[in-house]
């Protein structure tokens, strides 16, 4: 297993990480979306600022993972952890940073008494399903359905 880069640090998300996240997302998707990330970061910071995490290497944000605890949605009564978006700068992949972010989120969820974590993934995206499978996600009975309109 590759070592986490010695100078890598995982810490909770804060509002000064917006620029870094916008940059990583632009590297991954090719599009610049500051409004979207301002809105998402605000959402996570106001709900549970210690849940979402970023990874820093030499003081620069190179990865992020956004998460929170939700209850009462989709008829799920029990509070459950949700993993929403995440991304690692392509130059920093394969160094276990994705896993390190997820471990920090898991530790926080445990301290809040959460007993399961859910996420939604596009089955056709082999990279994402591969990563999620490696860190322990398994298919759930809960299934995403849709109707095109």
């Amino acid at each position: 297993m590759p070592e986490v880069t010695s100078s890598a640090k995982v810490r909770p998300l804060d509002e000064l990480d917006i620029a870094g996240i916008v940059r990583i997302d632009e590297r991954i998707t090719g599009s610049y979306k500051p409004d979207l990330w301002e809105q998402r970061v605000m959402y996570y910071l106001r709900r549970d600022p210690l849940a979402s995490q970023v990874a820093e290497v030499d003081g620069k944000v190179v990865g992020f993972m956004l998460a929170d605890v939700r209850a009462g949605e989709f008829g799920l009564e029990e509070p459950g952890g949700w993993l929403e978006r995440f991304g690692i700068d392509p130059d920093f992949r394969g160094r276990d940073l994705g896993r390190a972010l997820f471990d920090a989120i898991t530790a926080h969820f445990r301290s809040r008494g959460v007993t399961s974590i859910s996420t939604l993934v596009d089955q056709n995206d082999k990279s994402l399903t591969g990563f999620l499978g490696s860190i322990g996600f398994r298919p759930s009975a809960l299934q995403a359905l849709e109707i095109p309109l």
Binding site: E15, I18, M42, L45, R46, P49
Partner: peptide
């Protein structure tokens, strides 16, 4: 934890 929101309410 509340302060994290205050800073975002300024910076954003």
């Amino acid at each position: 934890r509340e302060e994290a929101f205050h800073l975002a309410a300024g910076v954003i």
